[in-house]
């Protein structure tokens, strides 16, 4: 076995597929999330299919004070971490966030501060060990603020910036940091939404993530063409962009 990968926010479709991609490469898994019944089902499935050890545990992204104990608990159960994947997040509702501070705070904490709190702990351990990888699932929504989802986008954008800094800090220690920016992925969140095009399967996304880690990539747009879509979008002059209905 190659060591254990901690998946934070393990019951999303992308997380499940990413976990499967690492398990098929011989990594053990620690699945962390909120719905323990679902986690147990995912764990049994991955253990049977890939014949690797899979443990599960509950965590709350917003309960910062509990994070150190949680990471201790993971290491105790599964040993020093080979890798960690931050897959949790919360799209929320922009229209509600405008008037409802609780919603705004939930979006920020579950996409940004919660991830920072957990990754600080993991990064310190990995830096000391001189090995490991960190995968953060950010979003193309973080590349440019738009009226329809800028609270979410700003949190994901901040997260991407955090990952960038972390990568810079950990590079000398030999710890790799991968920023993933998914475009449209066929998940429960996007199923049936209007305006979706060229939707990628979670399985494809999971495979690309594991492969990007193997190859030591820094930033992964998935599917790949989103790099170019976002290149165009980020280059529209602000004077014009601010008038668009996006």
């Amino acid at each position: 076995m190659k060591g254990t990968v901690l998946i934070l926010g393990a019951s999303s479709a992308i997380a499940r597929a990413t976990a499967a991609a690492f398990a098929s490469r011989g990594y053990g898994l620690y699945l962390a999330g909120r719905d323990e019944e679902e986690l147990a089902r995912d764990a049994a499935d991955l253990a049977i299919r890939h014949q690797v050890p899979v443990a599960t545990g509950r965590f709350d992204a917003e309960a910062f004070a509990q994070h150190p104990a949680f990471i201790e608990q993971v290491v105790e159960a599964s040993g020093e971490l080979a890798g960690v994947v931050v897959a949790f997040g919360y799209l929320g509702e922009q229209s509600r966030a405008v008037h409802d501070w609780d919603e705004t705070l939930a979006i920020i904490q579950r996409n940004y501060t919660g991830a920072v709190s957990l990754l600080n702990l993991c990064a310190n351990r990995m830096e000391q060990a001189g090995t490991g990888f960190i995968v953060g699932i950010a979003s193309v929504a973080g590349d440019r603020g738009r009226q329809s989802n800028y609270t979410y986008g700003s949190a994901k954008g901040a997260f991407a910036l955090y990952l960038q800094g972390l990568r810079n800090r950990l590079a000398p220690a030999g710890v790799r940091v991968l920023t993933v920016k998914p475009g449209f992925v066929d998940t429960g969140m996007t199923f049936g939404l209007p305006g979706m095009f060229l939707v990628a399967s979670p399985r494809y996304v999971g495979e690309r993530i594991a492969r990007a880690v193997e190859r030591g990539r820094d930033v992964l747009y998935v599917p790949w063409f989103w790099r170019y879509i976002m290149l165009i979008i980020t280059h529209i002059p602000e004077r014009i962009f601010k008038r668009l209905k996006l």
Binding site: A13, R41, D42, A44, D45, I48, R49, G188
Partner: peptide, 9 residues
């Protein structure tokens, strides 16, 4: 189609 997990073997 998304409920395709093995739980015991």
């Amino acid at each position: 189609e998304r409920l395709n997990r093995l739980s015991a073997f």
